[in-house]
Amino acid sequence: MEKSLNVVITGANGFIGKNLVAELNKNENLIIKKVVRDTSKDTLKDYLSKADIVFHLAGVNRPKNDSEFIEGNRNFTNEIIEIIKEQDYKPAIVLSSSIQAVSDNAYGLSKKAGEQVLLNFSEEFKSKVFIYRLPNVFGKWCKPNYNSVVATFCHNISHNIDIHINDENHMLNLVYIDDVIKEFKSLLDDFEDLKSGFKEVGPVYEITLGKLASKLESFKLSRENRMVPDLSKGLFKKLYSTYLSYLDIDEFAYNLKMNVDNRGSFTEFLKTEENGQVSINISKPGIVKGNHWHHTKNEKFLVVSGEGVIRFRKYGTDEVIKYHVSGDKLEVVDIPTGYTHNIENLGHSDMVTVMWANELFDPNNPDTYFEEV
């Protein structure tokens, strides 16, 4: 996309709208006009008269009475179309509809009615119309206790508020906000060449209410047990990012247990079931730590502040090997099995070392054997 495009976004202050605006604002070739609740009809007409593409994201989800569904989901769509009909140039229109459009309820019927307005318009004027029947969209900036169970669960769990589940086995279909925005953004490059009609956003994830709640609870617990959540699956990675966005601003930080003595301190930072753990070791000047070896456990040491020396001696031999380390030159030192080893602070200030071990510490099987280097 090289030429400038005029982009109109209705519902620009809503969940999807806010994310779309944030993404499209990065592109200097886009002229973005935001339509919100208090946008006047004259302003709306002005925006639409210059639009190349309209992202129609405005809608009603939780009205006081069912009649508002039609007003917000069909009538406003029809108002936009009637304005565009009077123009010589007909912009492409992208509609965020819902999978509920196939359901026989007030919300679903209003969404389907809004779709039909666009389909009729497209057929009459041969204009480009793209309709997305979105499943449950989740991600940052989604309002809790509104129309997203993910947002509600994230907010309540992170704020120590009980959640209520009627059916733990109820299956949810979820799509991540960034995937929605990526799809919408891709339209800007070739919407003029695309065929009108229904389009899809993926991937769509399936998860039960019970599993969703359990996973979000584990994210909360991870700050206490220091276990890094399993993020190998795309859904869990996206849920974790979403969960963190609901923390209160005074809850971003959390304390770690520091094991302190006259030599310095040792603090476990992160743990994983599959890939061991990371700890932070602080040594006072002149202090030597270690003097032990392992059968299977292996480690990586990274001095990030201060200076010192790491010494090795292979079990059963006399030769001592030395590696000088410093926070001025970041260098990872592997600690192989079968070598007794220690680390000494040679500087005049605390030496800070990031230590990774390939397994979680097991007090019943520490695999650690004292022997002076």
Rank of each mutant, 00 (worst) to 15 (best):
E23C: 07
V36N: 15
D38L: 03
K41F: 13
T43C: 01
K45V: 06
L48Q: 08
L48N: 10
A51V: 12
V60C: 11
S67I: 01
R74Q: 13
F76R: 14
Q87T: 00
K90H: 08
S98Q: 01
S98I: 06
Y107F: 09
G108T: 01
L109D: 04
A113G: 08
E115V: 02
Q116G: 02
L118R: 01
F121G: 05
S122E: 09
Y132R: 08
Y132T: 02
R133A: 10
L134I: 13
G139I: 06
P144D: 12
A151V: 12
T152P: 05
C154G: 14
S158R: 08
I165Q: 13
D167S: 09
D167Y: 05
N173F: 14
E206V: 11
T208Y: 09
L209I: 07
K211W: 01
S214N: 15
S214M: 09
F219R: 08
K220Y: 08
K220S: 11
L221P: 00
N225I: 00
N225R: 04
R226K: 15
R226Y: 14
L231H: 04
L247D: 06
N255D: 15
N259S: 10
N259D: 12
F266M: 14
T267A: 08
E268H: 11
V278W: 13
I280T: 02
K284I: 01
K284H: 10
P285C: 02
H292K: 12
H292G: 03
N298R: 03
K300P: 00
G306D: 00
K314H: 14
V320Y: 08
I321T: 14
L330M: 14
V333W: 00
P336Q: 05
T340D: 04
T340K: 06
T353W: 01
N358R: 13
E359R: 10
L360K: 15
P363F: 13
P366S: 15
